[in-house]
Simulated assay, not measured.
Amino acid sequence: MNQAVSLEHAVSVERIGATAIVRLDRGKNKNALSQAVMTELTRVAESFHEDRSINSVILTGTRTEFSAGVDLKDPARWNIDPADIEAIRIASSRGAAMCRAWENIPQLTIAAIEGINVGGGIALTLCCDWRVQSETSIMMLPEAQIGLPLSWQTVPRLVNIVGASKAKQLILLGEKLSSHEALELGLIDFVVPAGTALDKALQLAEKVNKNPRLVTTLTKHSVNNYANALNHLASYMDVDQSVLCGLSESAVQTREKFSA
């Protein structure tokens, strides 16, 4: 039985058997991650913890974009009084909280990506267990180009996948990656024809759903605890690094040019 539940204008959840499909569709700003959207995505992720009817969760966007990353036009993030450091830290922490919530979902998670996926969108998909991406999709980490270090505790996740040298290249050069380049690096797991990312994710989810739910949960728990053991230690200060860099005059000027 299929059931669609609208949670807010940007995020919806559809249940197909033992699989939940979480869809991000703001209908504007290329699915950029505003403070409100990040809060909603966090709440949705946390809602699965005690849902024993769900064995797998798919996260997807629209047919033309997964996400353009953090919303550089969101007044709730960028119009905070520069003197109110605590408010800036709270706002800056929402991305990391969202990512941790998705990483900690007990069910197996699959990101189904069509179109562009940039910055914070990549940070979010790296928290999923598997990533299926359209062959026409483009990825990019532009944080350095907008005057910010890569945050949301993404650096250790990225290093775990691609290694230290390549991680620095991806962050500091900010070059566009094709799906096949991303596949070679391990940033994604499957490349599929355009328009079929969700179909492939559903096929994978159906296979996983045949396993006893507890086996999937405990396997994911064991693998993640080993792979991510030092992640918090390595990145617990990245919010403060982002705040420090983001308040600089050069960063403000760079963001204005980038989002113009």
Rank of each mutant, 00 (worst) to 15 (best):
Ser134Lys: 04
Ser134Ala: 07
Ser134Cys: 03
Ser137Glu: 01
Met140Ala: 14
Pro142Arg: 01
Pro142Val: 12
Leu148Phe: 09
Pro149Asn: 02
Trp152Gly: 00
Gln153Asn: 11
Gln153Thr: 10
Thr154Ser: 14
Pro156Asp: 07
Leu158Ser: 11
Leu158Asn: 14
Asn160Phe: 00
Ile161Met: 03
Val162Lys: 12
Gly163Asp: 14
Gly163Arg: 09
Ser165Pro: 04
Lys166Phe: 06
Lys168Met: 15
Lys168Pro: 01
Gln169Ile: 07
Leu172Ala: 05
Leu172Trp: 07
Leu173Asn: 14
Lys176Leu: 03
Lys176Ala: 10
Ser179Pro: 12
His180Leu: 07
His180Tyr: 06
Glu181Ala: 09
Ala182Trp: 08
Ala182Tyr: 05
Ala182Asp: 00
Glu184Trp: 02
Glu184Ala: 12
Leu185Asp: 11
Gly186Asn: 10
Leu187Phe: 04
Ile188Asn: 09
Ile188Val: 15
Ile188Gln: 07
Ile188Gly: 06
Asp189Gly: 12
Phe190Glu: 15
Val191Ser: 09
Val191Cys: 10
Val192Thr: 08
Gly195Tyr: 01
Gly195Asn: 01
Ala197Phe: 00
Asp199Val: 14
Asp199Gln: 08
Asp199Pro: 02
Lys200Met: 12
Gln203Met: 04
Glu206Met: 02
Lys207Thr: 09
Asn211Val: 05
Pro212Ser: 03
Pro212Lys: 06
Arg213Ser: 08
Leu214Tyr: 06
